Amino acid sequence: MDKEIAEHLLAISTDCTRDANESMKRIMGTCDEETFKMYRRLGARIMGHLFTEIIAPIQSEHPELAPPDFKPMELVERPRMRLTKESQDDLLASLNRLYEQIETMAGFVRENCDKAEAAAYRSRTHEVLAHVAEAMACVLSAHVDEK
């Protein structure tokens, strides 16, 4: 990843982490202890995933952007498929269509369901989108035979 893009993503991640932490501080004392603990777990999960899925991989790739005590992640190279260029293009087109359909589904639910139901479906559709994006990354990193 380009260093300038990495810096931008880290800045956004820092803002998101701060916002999640602030939301936990705001709710503390405004509800019962059990409710606060439930929300704190959710906020901690957000911050944890921001770190493990975005911040740490970027700082591992760009150690100069990491704090001095940061221990880089071991980067695991994904297995690479062997595809023809035609197969790669076909798979990417299919995965892009799938991604767009799932995004459409999330938008439809957001516009037509109550807020709680919409939030639950957004969570589920984002999980599916993550898997589609992972498949895209795998297809894009394939060894391509130019036949």
Rank of each mutant, 00 (worst) to 15 (best):
Q101D: 15
A93G: 13
L83A: 04
Y99K: 15
Y99S: 14
E100H: 11
E103C: 10
E100D: 15
F108W: 03
L95H: 09
T84H: 01
L95K: 08
V109H: 00
A106C: 09
R82S: 11
V109M: 07
M81P: 05
D114R: 13
I102V: 15
E103G: 05
V109N: 01
I102C: 10
S87K: 12
E86Q: 10
R82F: 04
A116P: 00
Y99H: 15
A93Q: 11
T84D: 09
E111C: 09
L95A: 10
Q88R: 09
N96K: 14
E100R: 08
A93T: 07
E103P: 01
C113D: 01
E86R: 09
K85L: 14
N96E: 13
C113K: 13
L95D: 05
K85W: 01
T104S: 13
A106K: 12
Q88E: 10
T84W: 03
G107K: 11
K85C: 09
R110G: 07
L91Y: 01
S94P: 02
A119V: 07
D90S: 13
R97K: 14
K115L: 08
L92S: 03
K115Y: 00
T104H: 06
E117R: 08
A119D: 05
K85F: 09
N112Y: 01
Q101K: 11
K115T: 02
E103F: 01
N96T: 06
E117M: 11
D114Q: 12
L83K: 02
Q88K: 07
L92Q: 04
R97N: 14
R97F: 06
